[in-house]
Write a protein that binds this DNA or RNA. Structure first.
Lengths: 140, 140
DNA sequence: CGCAAACCCGATCGATTTTGTCGGAAATGG
DNA sequence: CCATTTCCGACAAAATCGATCGGGTTTGCG
């Protein structure tokens, strides 16, 4: 069970946007220094846009920017948008039609774990990540 | 980011063994009622054995049994054994050779998240799961 | 001893997901 | 009008998932 590159790239891109939030919309080619393949990154940004996490403006001088303040975007938001929801069980709600239902004896375990996991991810904002990284850098 | 069937089947099988711990080694065909395809389950049990979580005895009257008491086996153990370690980052240790290193700006975020996630998974034992499930059943 | 029960092991395989790549279409500022 | 830039859908190589299968080895028991 591991994070795919989508989640990792997604957060990297969002942190990049957060760091350059005061420079107006950033075109894709400006994000080369993240080391992510531009064509692939474009897809991820499309997912982030559809999830309402980034705004885009088309045409010349266009680009990507954060839709909300870094304090109001969580790591959980980013991972959900790029990778889909984090979960241990298919039926995280009281969905009676879930195809697992038959032999899912430990369902309550999975539901409870998913809940805690998502609480954890939602407790971390882009702003808090940047703060931590700055602290790290100044320590070194 | 979700759990594959390996982790789910793995826990189901382990809970089954825990429930029947006093009946001696359980042969594979006894586990039919879990609804897991026997040939596939056999592979998972092999992983669990290699991880030191189950003991096996071969030959007639042989079968599978828990290697430790249900209090001493965690959900994290089972998931690690069947799915591999749960992690957000490839380099969870101070591994300087990690190929991500170059552009993994948020590495400390991933390491910290992996740590918390694994602490969570390791805090739940087979025994505590069975206890919760029994409580649930008596409530209903 | 010989047999049947049972685990052990490696190969294979179709489907799905991941990780991109590409080629244009559409919008927009200047 | 035109260069810039996002938008969109198709395609594809590679990896992983979820099995399935065939045969080998070990062991208890009559």
């Amino acid at each position: 069970m591991k994070l795919s590159t989508k989640g990792r790239y997604g957060l990297t891109a969002m942190l990049y946007l957060a760091r350059h939030a005061d420079e107006g919309p950033l075109p894709l080619r400006m994000m080369d220094e993240t080391g992510i393949q531009p064509d692939y990154l474009e897809q991820l940004l499309a997912s982030l846009r559809k999830a309402g996490l980034v705004c885009t403006s088309r045409g010349a001088q266009g680009g990507y920017s954060l839709a909300r303040a870094p304090e109001d975007i969580t790591v959980g938001d980013v991972i959900s948008a790029t990778e889909g929801p984090v979960r241990f069980c298919e039926c995280d709600s009281e969905d009676a039609t879930c195809s697992w239902r038959e032999h899912c004896d430990a369902r309550s375990v999975w539901v409870s774990l998913s809940q805690k996991m998502n609480d954890l991810l939602d407790s971390i904002t882009l702003a808090s990540v940047l703060e931590d990284l700055n602290k790290e850098a100044s320590d070194a």
